[in-house]
């Protein structure tokens, strides 16, 4: 996209080009998968290591496993969220599309596994439970802690 300097009296933002990405384990800390869009505030530079360590000790191994899997779902889902917005304005970008294909398939599988092992995160996941066990009498949509309780995270 070339800059048209002849246009006065209107805002211009250069189109982002596909560039370096953050690894999956970093994306929640940076708030974007795109290194070019990571523009932190000076007063926000501090340690993140101490976070969420205190509560972990109190948890059972099953709760810890639930939290671990939830965090993985949050990371992959967030990459999907960020890619979706990029593709909304760059629908023909082959790199973004290739990555999206990997991410949505992986996410679907993770959601299905989480539903089987813990509780469904989407109503769609109920199908995974009934497909595995047609005689299931479980209406498990309301199982699991509310997201705002900070229990499984």
């Amino acid at each position: 996209m070339k800059m048209q300097d002849s246009h006065l009296a209107i805002a211009s933002v250069p189109f982002q080009r596909w560039g370096e990405l953050y690894a999956l384990d970093e994306v929640l800390n940076t708030g974007t998968v795109f290194k070019d869009l990571d523009l932190p505030f000076f007063a926000a530079a501090d340690m993140q290591a101490s976070r969420r360590v205190t509560g972990e000790i109190m948890k059972s191994s099953r709760e810890q496993e639930c939290s671990r899997k939830m965090t993985e779902i949050q990371k992959v889902s967030f990459v999907m969220d960020d890619l979706r917005l990029y593709l909304d304005t760059h629908p023909d970008d082959p790199d973004a599309l290739a990555m999206l294909k990997r991410v949505v398939c992986k996410r679907k599988q993770m959601l299905s596994e989480f539903a089987a092992e813990f509780y469904p995160l989407t109503f769609e996941c109920m199908a995974d439970i009934y497909e595995k066990d047609a005689s299931s009498m479980c209406y498990c949509w309301q199982e699991g802690p509310a997201p705002w309780e900070g229990v499984c995270c």
Partner: peptide, 11 residues
Amino acid sequence: IYEKRLQYPVK
């Protein structure tokens, strides 16, 4: 459609 999780964890 609701998804029963936060986009970013809050604890």
